[in-house]
Amino acid sequence: MNLEDIMRRLEVLRIEHRDLDSAILALSSSGTGDQLQLARLKKRKLRLRDEIAALEDALVPDIIA
């Protein structure tokens, strides 16, 4: 992956992460939220966060101390 691909992928992941945030909030505040669905959304959000962190780490060059 080149720099441009990583930046594009990060933007897509960040948008999906925000969308999941909204979905989780809406589902939990409705009071009739399906707990299994809520757990799946939270798990997906964590996976996205991990992927975002990995891509951000790829953008930072390794510095040998």
Rank of each mutant, 00 (worst) to 15 (best):
L46V: 11
R9M: 06
A26P: 04
L59A: 02
R8H: 11
E56R: 04
K43V: 12
D19E: 15
R8V: 11
L59P: 02
I15R: 09
D50G: 15
A26V: 06
L48M: 11
E51N: 03
I52T: 09
S28P: 07
V12G: 03
Q35L: 12
P61N: 03
E11M: 07
R18A: 05
R8G: 05
A26L: 10
K42M: 10
D57K: 15
R18D: 14
K45I: 06
V12M: 09
T32H: 11
L48N: 15
A53F: 07
I24R: 02
H17W: 15
L25P: 01
D5I: 10
L59G: 03
P61Y: 01
M7V: 06
R8N: 09
I24K: 05
L59V: 01
D50Y: 15
Q37L: 13
A23I: 08
R14Y: 08
D50H: 13
L48I: 13
D19C: 01
R18P: 01
I52H: 03
Q35K: 09
D62T: 06
A39I: 05
D50F: 15
V60F: 04
V12D: 13
L3M: 07
S29W: 02
A58Y: 00
R49P: 04
I64P: 04
T32N: 14
V60S: 01
I52E: 03
L13M: 11
I15P: 04
A53N: 15
D34F: 00
K43Y: 14
S22T: 13
L3F: 08
E16D: 05
L59E: 07
D21G: 15
A23P: 03
N2D: 15
K45N: 11
R40M: 15
A26G: 07
R40T: 13
I63L: 14
D5W: 04
D34P: 00
I24V: 03
L55I: 02
K45E: 11
E11V: 06
K42N: 11
A54E: 15
M7K: 04
S29Y: 03
S22C: 09
E56D: 05
D19G: 02
R40A: 14
R9G: 00
A53V: 10
L38R: 02
L27N: 09
K45D: 07
R40Y: 13
I15T: 13
L36S: 08
R14P: 03
M7G: 01
D5T: 10
S29L: 05
E51I: 13
V12W: 12
E11Y: 04
L13D: 00
S28E: 08
S29Q: 11
E56M: 03
A58K: 12
M1K: 10
A58W: 04
I63R: 13
L13P: 00
N2K: 02
D34R: 00
S22L: 14
M7E: 06
L46E: 15
G33V: 03
R49M: 12
R44M: 06
D57T: 07
D21Y: 11
I6V: 04
A39T: 05
A39W: 04
L13Y: 06
A53H: 11
H17D: 13
R18H: 08
A23R: 14
D34C: 00
E51A: 07
Q35D: 06
L20D: 09
L38D: 02
S29H: 07
D5N: 14
Q37R: 15
L3K: 12
R14L: 09
V60L: 02
E51G: 06
D5A: 14
G31S: 01
G31A: 00
